[in-house]
């Protein structure tokens, strides 16, 4: 369960570059919700996910994950509850560490690290089994440095690593945007599989309206730091790309009308 209450976030507050990135966002995700998030460039989607993950603190508002208030928890502390996959495939793994070392790092997410061996012999079989799910042959390359892998392979590995310790919420920020269509499709179905099999509460940002409609049980459209549209259940199922685009232009049209009013 995750709950946001009146989240407000400015960047460069008080300067000429001031950006009002999140405008009073209140949101509640139930356990197991799979939410797709859409919105134009600069709508505040990444800012919303970064705020939940603790990359920065909101200017006001409260964030609850699980039972507790995590508003003031630093990012590393929230990591016990949150897994993330970024748009940039390079961000999710350590290039100079091996595949097994990366997996071992992720297997300890949010737990105390001590002076035990980083990779234990008993881990290897488990890592191999998990890697086999990816169908990329990585199970035979445990000792290869991750820097040698392609972007798609790295992103697949990151997906796997994100769920080695079950998170309260999984945050995906355009995690297939940097991949070629075939690999993107593969990662996307992998995502669906993992999310469904573990019943993960998930937020997935995408610019692909078809994906936004066909994946998950709930859809959010952000615009100028606000939730413009929040559809779930049958409302979402019957949605078409055309409906979405209409909503989208409606929002932008209002904005244009406002501008012309102000200017006129």
């Amino acid at each position: 369960m995750i709950r946001l209450e009146h989240i407000v976030k400015y960047f460069h507050k008080g300067s000429v570059n001031e950006v009002f990135a999140l405008n009073d966002i209140t949101l509640r995700l139930a356990e197991g919700d799979f939410v797709t998030v859409i919105g134009s460039n600069g709508a505040g989607k990444s800012t919303l996910l970064n705020c939940i993950a603790g990359s920065f603190f909101p200017d006001s508002g409260k964030i609850f994950i699980g039972a507790g208030d995590v508003t003031r928890w630093p990012e590393y502390r929230r990591a016990a509850l949150i897994s993330r996959v970024f748009q940039n495939p390079l961000l999710g793994t350590c290039p100079s560490a091996t595949i097994e070392q990366n997996m071992a790092l992720a297997a300890l997410r949010g737990q105390k690290r001590g002076l035990g061996r980083g990779v234990k012999g008993s881990d290897r079989e488990r890592f191999r089994t998990e890697l086999r799910q990816l169908g990329l042959g990585l199970e035979d390359r445990l000792l290869d440095k991750v820097g040698l892998l392609s972007g798609g392979q790295r992103q697949a590995l990151t997906m796997l690593m994100a769920t080695m310790v079950k998170p309260e919420v999984l945050l995906l920020d355009e995690h297939i945007a940097a991949l070629d269509p075939k690999t993107a499709g593969h990662i996307l179905s992998l995502t669906e599989e993992i999310v469904a099999s573990r019943g993960l509460t998930t937020m997935m940002i995408t610019h692909n309206m078809k994906h936004a409609i066909s994946f998950g049980n709930r859809l959010l459209m952000l615009h100028q730091g606000r939730v413009l549209l929040d559809l779930c259940g049958s409302d979402k199922k019957t949605l078409t790309v055309k409906d979405l685009l209409e909503q989208f232009y409606l929002a932008q049209g209002e904005e244009l009308a406002m501008d012309s009013l102000l200017l006129g």
Binding site: A53, P74, E75, Y76, R77, A79, A80, I82, S83, R84, F86, L90, L91, G92, T93, C94, P95, S96, A97, L105, A106, L108, R109, G110, Q111, R113
Partner: peptide, 13 residues
Amino acid sequence: DNPQMITSQGVNI
């Protein structure tokens, strides 16, 4: 190697 990654794994860099 990757401060963002290890932060996301719960380590205070």
